[in-house]
Design a protein around this nucleic acid. Structure first.
Length: 497
RNA sequence: GUGAGCGUAGCUCAGCUGGUAGAGCAUCGGUCUGUGGCACCGAGGGUCGUGGGUUCAAAUCCCAUCGCUCACCCCA
């Protein structure tokens, strides 16, 4: 008897089914097309990396790293079967001893204690019997043999790692890369937030931090959102300064917050110590008057940052990009400097950001690479799709073009041959694998949303002309094979399919 | 991690204060053996999330558990 329980997608993951998957593909394809027109090229990255990469880049103190990552140990040795005899145990014991000697077991204090315990258990097997064997097996299992790996919670760190690893700083000009794929974060799911979620993002890495780079990236975003028809998006920009001026501002902010501490809620009071910038993000209505009076970072930027931000805004004007300056827009990740930005859209519930990004001039160096400037963004695909589906601009995506209704053993070979030719023209064609009455076939064609039904019976085969019926208005015409191919191919181009 | 709401057919849901399951849509078949959408008729499909308790009797009341959803924390 097989088990009756049903398998289900695990919490925070989901299946994207047709027809939704078509919308997803179209969105990602459009992003690729737009990005490529801006000179970006695809980078395919692993979905997991050394845990330390994320800890270093995102910041070990952030929630993302401290409690929201899918981290696992990459074990590869001592996945031993249960020992069948005392001899087996002794053999395993010897193998462990040798591995320890040669450093194949990482020499951590925990492992050292485990190895000692394991040897002790082995020695006592004759005297104690089963309990010692169980202790022994426990210790074998507890050995932490592999590297700590983590499913990527975001991709910027991976891009930076790849940039360094492949010496991309020697490439001519700025390195412009985009990526598309899943990310993983172990959070409580809610609207627009999943444990496996998808992003499309882009990064520019190189020697220059010219505001024109920032502006171009924002232009590219606006163009993309416009092209996919995302409704009611708003671009917010801010500058959060650099390593020079930001710490001074944060300290000033902390001092000011302490003065008004009594007017803040418990969450914000806690943030005064943990991350004062986040207080600015608070949505609590009663805190708003207090927050409005707090010092603003724009007034405390160093000369260079102030100029950079001013030039960015000039560049945005120049490009005719609508934006709102939002002094309360801060980023949670440690590596951001200067320019930060976010795009919000409608229909998303409380998680209304579809895109976030910013400049991270110190990141590559932090990861051991050469001094490098960088800026990038990530679009939350789940949210973009959600907003698209709730918005007014539903793209019409081409579906099935032709359903071939055939009857009679003489018609079948002709139908199969024509199906292949139509498909070779790029048309989506469905052909029933077994004889189906025209009535039923037409009904199916209709339900599948086909634009045309091609009717092939004994008569058509005999005359060499086939009946093409347009399902929308029931108009029929008789065409020979070459006219048919020509007609449908021009129809395909016309429908943009 | 915290809080709230909800779990009845593939989907959306009804089933009032307990009397052992129903509708619409969808699917399949028929009316209609070379032509779809409409209409009519019919069929299949549920151990009412799971386990326990109260009761003569539980989808309904109680407890537990699992799951889903939304919000908070945090963040894209």
């Amino acid at each position: 008897m097989t088990e009756k329980r049903q398998f289900r997608a695990i919490k925070g993951t989901r299946d994207i089914l047709p027809p939704d998957s078509a919308l997803w593909n179209w969105f990602e394809r459009t992003a690729r097309e737009v990005f490529e027109t801006y000179g970006f090229r695809d980078i395919r990255l692993p979905v997991f990396e050394e845990t330390a990469l994320f800890a270093r880049s995102i910041g070990a103190d952030t929630d993302v790293v401290s409690k929201e990552m899918y981290t696992f140990e990459d074990r590869e040795q001592f996945r031993v079967a249960h020992p069948l005899s005392v001899v087996d145990v002794i053999l395993i014991d010897e193998a462990v001893a040798e591995a320890w000697q040669h450093g194949r077991i990482p020499r951590t204090p925990a492992n050292e204690a485990e190895v000692l315990r394991l040897h002790e258990a082995c020695r006592n097997i004759e005297r104690e019997g089963i309990p010692a064997v169980l202790r022994f097996l426990d210790s074998v299992r507890n050995l932490a043999l592999g590297d700590s790996l983590t499913l990527r919670p975001e991709a910027t760190a991976s891009v930076a790692r790849a940039y360094i690893e492949h010496g991309m700083h020697t490439l001519p000009g700025n390195v412009k890369l985009y990526y598309v794929g899943p990310m993983f974060r172990r959070e409580r799911p809610q609207k627009g937030r999943y444990r496996q979620f998808y992003q499309v993002g882009a990064e520019v890495l190189g020697q220059s931090d010219a505001p024109g780079i920032d502006a171009e990236i924002l232009e590219m975003l606006v163009v993309l959102f416009d092209r996919v028809g995302l409704a009611k998006t708003t671009l917010f920009v801010n500058s959060i300064g650099c390593r020079e001026c930001r710490p001074k501002y944060v300290e000033l902010l902390r001092q000011e917050l302490l003065k008004v501490k009594d007017h803040l809620g418990t969450d914000s009071q806690r943030r005064i110590e943990t991350n004062p910038l986040r207080v600015l993000d608070s949505k609590l209505p009663e805190e708003q008057p207090v927050i409005e009076k707090l010092p603003r970072i724009a007034d405390h930027l160093c000369g260079a940052c102030r100029q950079h931000f001013a030039e960015l805004k000039d560049e945005l004007e120049l490009r005719g990009i609508a934006y709102q300056e939002n002094w309360r827009l801060v980023r949670g990740l440690d590596y951001y400097t200067r320019t930060t930005f976010e795009v919000t859209a409608e229909g998303l519930g409380s998680q209304n950001a579809v895109c976030g990004g910013g400049r991270y001039d110190g990141l590559v160096e932090l990861l051991g690479g050469p001094p490098t400037k960088g800026i990038g963004f990530a679009i939350g695909t789940d949210r973009a799709i959600l907003s698209l589906q709730e918005g007014p601009n539903q793209p019409k995506l081409p579906g099935l073009a032709v359903f071939i209704a055939w009857m009679g053993t003489k018609a079948y070979p002709t139908a199969v041959a024509i199906a292949r030719k139509l498909r070779a023209c790029g048309l989506a064609v469905e052909i029933p694998p077994e004889e189906t009455k025209f009535k039923k076939a037409l009904g199916l064609a209709d339900k599948l949303g086909a634009r045309y039904a091609l009717i092939i019976g004994e008569d058509e085969v005999a005359s060499g002309t086939y009946t093409l019926k347009r399902l929308a208005d029931a108009e029929q015409k008789k065409l020979n094979e070459s006219d048919l191919l020509e007609y449908l191919e021009s129809e395909r181009r016309g429908s943009g399919a």
